[in-house]
Design a protein around this nucleic acid. Structure first.
Length: 463
RNA sequence: GGCCAGGUGGCAGAGUGGUUAUGCUGCGGCCUGCAAAGCCGUCUACGCCGGUUCGAUUCCGACCCUGGCCUCCA
């Protein structure tokens, strides 16, 4: 693959990398499937949030205007179940967990999208789309349900590579007997009392899951959008169904021009999922791991590859992040404040432009860090640091003050005490009283403080 | 069964038809009072079998293995 100035994206629809050409360079549109807010996000849920945040950043560096919509699914049977269990309205549940989602993703350096539409705020538009689909013969009402007819859409199965006629041939799942085709899916379903519902031409009910993305994407971004993303497990049926709804509702117009899907976070090579009981909740991880480390870890494998989670991987990344911060700190101690250049190196950009090759981009960033550590004069330091910090800013890493990062959370520790001990140790070293000096070093070590001596004095960081 | 990924050095993880990925770890060295941090060097890498080629880890075919989707799922 030659170095390129263009952005290449792997399009699930074509199963190959393609040069990204926006529909309208003045307004690039992207949509990513966001969370269903019925509990805390796990690290697997965080992967697409980080990946599409990165894509948003990269696109924004390339085009004057990028509109990124990431929905919040706030009406769903799991939310209903959670609300019923606690005896509270669904809004309490959805509000609590969407707030938590923002907080947790924020800790991972994930910014807010341009638009964050909620399903419950688009019920009228959903009803409107359903009416269009019924009128055009793509949907039918039966027993208070409205179903999409997959046989009415020739291209059904194109994204996931499935053949409708062969589909569900050996279906083990129970198929509601009112479906004309076992693959038909719900656009609207009736609600009974404790469940949330809205009035509609088909009675009191609530929308099917797939519908919201089609509707909100159209409402906020337009009938044809540039990029649609989500986890690999959404390819079928979710995204396949979104395509069917949107294309049929829009008279055959393309729904999304590029489809991107991230691989899973795995645990012992198995997909992390609630049913396997092997999820790690971000909210919990953040209690002992800083968000930036998690972000680096999530970017350390290519987004389409599986990312196997392990404590070793976490520790490894922790060290790497510390090392780069240490290099920046040392360089600033030697050369004074350093700041980001106007743009990262060409190599770094090429890596990102090649379908968001973050491992290669991080390799480049690390190489730049080594060049910075080796800088002989302020000129070298400025060039390397400029590239390093510009690259880091683009991907949302290394934005904190290095010394603060390395000092970490010295909860309960008294900085003045640390400084006093360091001073005493250095005085002892002056007097060649190394026994006392080492005793102090050991004492600090036990407090979780590691000392680093240099020509410019002694620095410390949390171990 | 259908469809889709992937098997790279001690580990993680990119990439490439012939040349250094990068990170972590181990080992040797520099630096240091000794360390730590940093730097330098270093450790028989490309699942198996065929084929194409002057040359394949990289292209083609078969095989073995792993994982995912086909049901809610990032």
């Amino acid at each position: 693959m030659p170095k390129t100035e263009s952005l290449l994206l792997y399009n699930t629809l074509k199963r190959e990398k393609q040069v990204f050409v926006p529909q309208d360079p003045e307004r690039v549109t992207m949509y990513a499937c966001g969370p269903t807010v019925y509990n805390y996000a796990h690290i697997g849920n965080a992967r697409p949030a980080v990946i599409f945040d990165l894509l948003f950043r990269v696109l924004s560096s390339l085009y004057p205007k990028v509109v990124y919509a990431r929905n919040i699914t706030d009406v769903d049977d799991k939310i209903n179940a959670s609300a019923a269990e606690e005896g509270v309205p669904i809004e309490v549940i959805s509000r609590r967990y969407s707030d938590a989602y923002h907080e947790d993703m924020g800790a991972l350096g994930v910014g807010l999208p341009s638009i964050e539409p909620r399903a419950t705020e688009h019920i009228p538009q959903m009803i409107d789309m359903i009416e269009h689909l019924i009128a055009s013969g793509h949907a039918y009402e039966v027993e208070g349900h409205v179903l999409f007819s997959v046989e009415s859409f020739d291209a059904y199965g194109a994204l996931s590579g499935r053949d409708v006629s062969e589909m569900l041939a050996g279906a083990r799942i129970e198929v509601a007997d009112f479906k004309r085709h076992p693959g038909d899916f719900v656009l609207w379903k009736p609600s009974v009392d404790p469940q949330p519902g809205w009035d509609s031409p088909w009675g009191w009910g609530r929308p099917g899951w797939h519908l919201e993305c089609s509707v909100m994407s159209e409402y906020h971004l337009g009938e044809t959008i540039d990029i649609h993303g989500g986890g690999q497990d959404l390819v079928f049926p979710h995204h396949e169904n979104e395509i069917a709804q949107s294309v049929c509702a829009h008279g055959g117009k393309t729904f999304a021009r590029y489809w991107m899907h991230n691989g899973f976070v795995t645990f012992n090579k198995r997909k992390m999922s609630k049913s396997l009981g092997n999820t790690l909740v971000v909210h919990e991880l953040l209690k002992h791991t800083r968000g930036e480390v998690l972000r680096y870890l999530l970017l350390s494998a290519h987004y389409r590859q599986p990312l196997d989670w392990s404590e070793e991987a976490l520790a490894r990344v922790q060290r790497t992040v510390d090392r780069v911060y240490g290099v920046i700190r040392d360089a600033e101690a030697k050369f004074g404040p350093l700041k980001a250049a106007s743009s990262p190196s060409g190599e770094f950009m090429s890596a990102l432009l090649d379908d968001l090759n973050t491992p290669e981009a991080l390799a480049e960033l690390n190489s730049e860090a080594r060049r910075l550590a080796n800088a002989k004069d302020i000129e070298d330091a400025r060039i390397s640091a400029g590239r390093l910090l510009a690259a880091a800013a683009l991907i949302g890493l290394f934005q904190q003050d290095p010394q603060s990062w390395l000092a970490g959370d010295t909860q309960g520790l008294d900085d003045a005490l640390i400084d006093a001990l360091i001073e005493e140790r250095n005085a002892s070293r002056e007097q060649k009283n190394f026994a006392r000096a080492d005793e102090i070093r050991d004492q600090l070590q036990e407090m979780g403080i590691v000392l680093e001596d240099s020509a410019d004095g002694t620095r410390w960081r949390r171990s």
